[in-house]
């Protein structure tokens, strides 16, 4: 293995600077005492304090969190089922369409999914609020979960499940005592991905939400349109920090497994 060439090093430096500098700048300016975003007025945490006094924002954070937990959980169950069906059932009626349906929401422009779901909710007279947003997020996130779990399922040894079946376990029992523990890291990663997708979503939520179910991204979007403020930088920093912590914790927890 030859070392990295100068071009490689330049590509790495430029690439990662491009990815991280904007985020870094955002974080730094969240501690700016000055209200002007480009003028440095000294270190301050006043914007964080202002954040916690902003009731509308805090309410929105609560809604976002609840939608995230519920939708990620349903999405993980459905997505895992779909992945097991795809990998373990050799052929069934409509498998082609099923695979396509599972795959399409990932690349489908969100405005289409959002508008079509809203029109469905109007057509069936479903009240718009917590549940309509949750349903929208499940539909979108379960496909990501299915992708993550599917790639894990297709790499592991099937003979363990067969051994369980030979020993008289029902398929359901074999799944819960053999398969599920083996794919648990992927299922957990799928849940986490579904959760972050949900708390991050603006477009689907804007279409499918109703009064009383305004999510955090919707609030942030409303404020961003009015201009850049240190307060938004502060809440962004908190969200980035939370996500970074969780992702680092998960990757540390699963590393010994991955190395094997």
């Amino acid at each position: 293995m030859k070392g990295l060439s100068r071009i490689d090093l330049a590509a790495l430096t430029f690439g990662f600077a491009f990815l991280y500098l904007p985020i870094l700048i955002l974080v730094v300016y969240s501690f700016n005492a000055s209200k002007l975003v480009t003028v440095w007025g000294g270190f301050s945490t006043e914007w964080y304090a202002a954040l916690f006094r902003n009731k509308a924002l805090m309410d929105a954070a609560g809604v976002t969190f609840r939608v995230g937990i519920v939708s990620a959980t349903i999405a993980t169950i459905l997505g895992t089922m779909a992945a097991v069906a795809l990998v373990r059932v050799p052929r069934f009626t409509g498998k082609g369409l099923f695979t396509g349906l599972l795959y399409a929401p990932i690349v489908m422009p969100e405005v289409i999914t959002g508008l079509s779901l809203l029109l469905l909710f109007v057509a069936i007279d479903l009240d718009r609020g917590f549940w309509s947003v949750t349903i929208a997020h499940v539909t979108f996130a379960m496909c990501y979960v299915a992708v993550v779990v599917r790639s894990r399922l297709s790499t592991f040894d099937r003979s363990l499940e067969e051994a369980a079946a030979d020993l008289g376990a029902t398929p359901l029992r074999a799944f819960f005592s053999v398969t599920l523990p083996l794919i648990a890291p992927a299922v957990a990663a799928g849940w986490l991905l579904a959760f972050t997708l949900s708390i991050d979503d603006l477009v689907l939520a804007s279409f499918t939400s109703g009064p009383g179910a305004t999510t955090l991204p919707m609030r942030i979007y409303g404020q961003v349109r009015l201009g850049v403020t240190p307060e938004i930088n502060a809440i962004s920093t908190l969200m980035i920090g939370a996500v970074a912590l969780v992702v680092i914790a998960v990757s540390l927890a699963t590393r010994p497994r991955a190395a094997r």
Binding site: P22, I23, I25, L26, P217, I232, S236, V243, A244
Partner: peptide, 16 residues
């Protein structure tokens, strides 16, 4: 990692 952090926030960062 950036993919896990909010899309909206990453776009917002560029406004500033």
């Amino acid at each position: 990692l950036p993919f896990w952090t909010s899309f909206l926030i990453r776009v917002y960062a560029w406004i500033g």
